[in-house]
Design a protein around this nucleic acid. Structure first.
Lengths: 278, 278
DNA sequence: TATAATAATGACTAATCGGTCACGTGTCAA
DNA sequence: TTGACACGTGACCGATTAGTCATTATTATA
């Protein structure tokens, strides 16, 4: 584990229990067992750490959802799986999730707020494709409202688990939410969010991840994965990033090779976005 | 306007645009055009200001909702009116509302977090009575879920208005939400939140408002209201607070006198809670 | 083993914070 | 005119902060 990863993991614990502002760099370094100077060897500033944490957690979440959608083959199950993934992943990474529930709209600076917008839009895009896949054209006019209702369900019930330590019967919860979603999809007729409104809201998705970061992600995957077609594909994709040479068809093919690889789902998602596929 | 009110109003603007921690007492006093010392004549600490702001805004909101429920006479309209009230009041007090969206779960201290829980429960209670009034026994098993769904709707669409400056067609939005609520009430069969779970969550509602604060609220109402039965009732209620003497029947009667008085709705609500009526 | 390169340290700085307090300033009644 | 009093002031305090940098420890290389 690199020092960077250590700092990220340890700082999450502190941020979650105290909040950003209330946690000093001193506390973080003590909690890591390193010196203050070592911190600034890994991160230029405290803000950079925060941005890195957001990137890490949100990419993890977004790519998990994307993986679910891409590999879906059961319309009835997809929505359930999606809900379950949301609650389960947040439950497992409860500390890091807690940060983002706490500091959702806390804009330390413009960079942070635009980052959150960026990831929010990615998630909305995923939910929309779930809806379109599950309900086809039957929700043509109400699908955008449906996206926001689903987000509302998740947000509200999520808070319940955070505020009070409820016994986590995610199965019942998700079945209940799937039913609610189905009911809304089937019976609502009055939309609020029209295509026009959505277009107004949409902003250019330009806050992507830097090429160097992607390369680092690939390298980490390469280290963890065993000798295989997938590993070879990753190596080739990394070379492509460093020195573009291959045709789009070849790149697409390499991506397809790691498409179903769970360990690489985040890398796959990032690469897909980077090369503008889909 | 007292100095206290001035500070509260001006500080809201700063808190809304920067957050609590990022706003210094220095900034607040400069923005008010007063000195740092003058601040500490009105408030013991920065935290006390924050608590006062929360009390003010939440009591305003809760009592508005309560006023709506108490004076309701049209089942079909109540839900619409409720949604409209939420969006409209938040829209009007957008700056103060923004604080609570931002710092929802930001616990500077335990007092703040328990205060937020307290007000959350009051709102949930109001929503529950709306549901019970509108849908009778037809939602016996799903009514608690309905409460959380309604909260989810409000929260999610509210953020939409904050993040992006949407043209505020509250009428369409509320009609759309009423339909969604009706659909859920009519068709959902799988509850997640049972009576038992709700009981587990419930906490004693003991974070009320101090007697001195109530007296101050009454005094302010007395100043603003013209000579009338209502004013006389307020004066008598104030005396009752200072020196308890009247029977419960008499107090209840005095409260009834100001029940429909819009200007006093917060005071009415607080007094009702104080004297344990309803 | 000797030397160069890199990683890590923690005392230090400058700035900012919430909060205090000795000191005006203006307004009364006596 | 005087003195009592409340209101208001801003320089000041100790504590804490993010961030720096001269110094030391460790590792790699020759």
């Amino acid at each position: 584990m690199t020092k960077k990863q250590l700092i990220m993991e340890k700082s999450i614990e502190l941020f979650a229990s105290q909040g950003f502002d209330a946690t000093s760099v001193q506390q973080i370094t003590e909690h890591c067992g390193i010196s203050k100077g070592a911190f600034y060897l890994s991160f230029k500033s405290k803000d950079e750490l925060i941005l890195a944490l957001i990137d890490h957690f949100m990419m993890e979440t977004v790519s998990s959802i994307d993986y679910l959608v891409i590999n879906a083959n059961d319309k009835d199950k997809l929505l359930y799986d999606f809900y379950y993934l949301c609650f389960d992943s947040v439950n497992q990474h409860s500390e890091s999730a807690l940060i983002f529930i706490k500091e959702q709209t806390h804009h330390l600076n413009d960079e942070l707020i635009s980052k959150m917008h960026y990831y929010n839009q990615l998630i909305e895009k995923s939910i929309l494709s779930i809806i379109e896949y599950v309900y086809d054209d039957t929700v043509q006019y109400t699908k955008y409202d449906l996206v926001y209702c689903i987000q509302g369900f998740i947000k509200t019930y999520m808070e319940l688990f955070f505020f009070y330590n409820l016994p986590a019967d995610f199965d019942t919860l998700c079945k209940s939410l799937v039913e609610k979603t189905n009911v809304l999809a089937r019976h609502t007729t009055i939309p609020f969010l029209s295509q026009n409104l959505i277009e107004m809201i949409k902003q250019p998705l330009n806050t992507g991840i830097a090429k160097e970061q992607i390369i680092q992600m690939i390298e980490q995957d390469i280290d963890e994965i065993e000798e295989s077609i997938e590993k070879e594909s990753l190596i080739l994709l990394k070379e492509e990033l460093e020195r573009p040479a291959l045709s789009r068809a070849l790149i697409k093919g390499l991506l397809e090779n790691i498409r179903h690889q769970v360990q690489c789902k985040t890398t796959f998602y990032v690469l897909k976005s980077y090369f503008n596929f889909e």
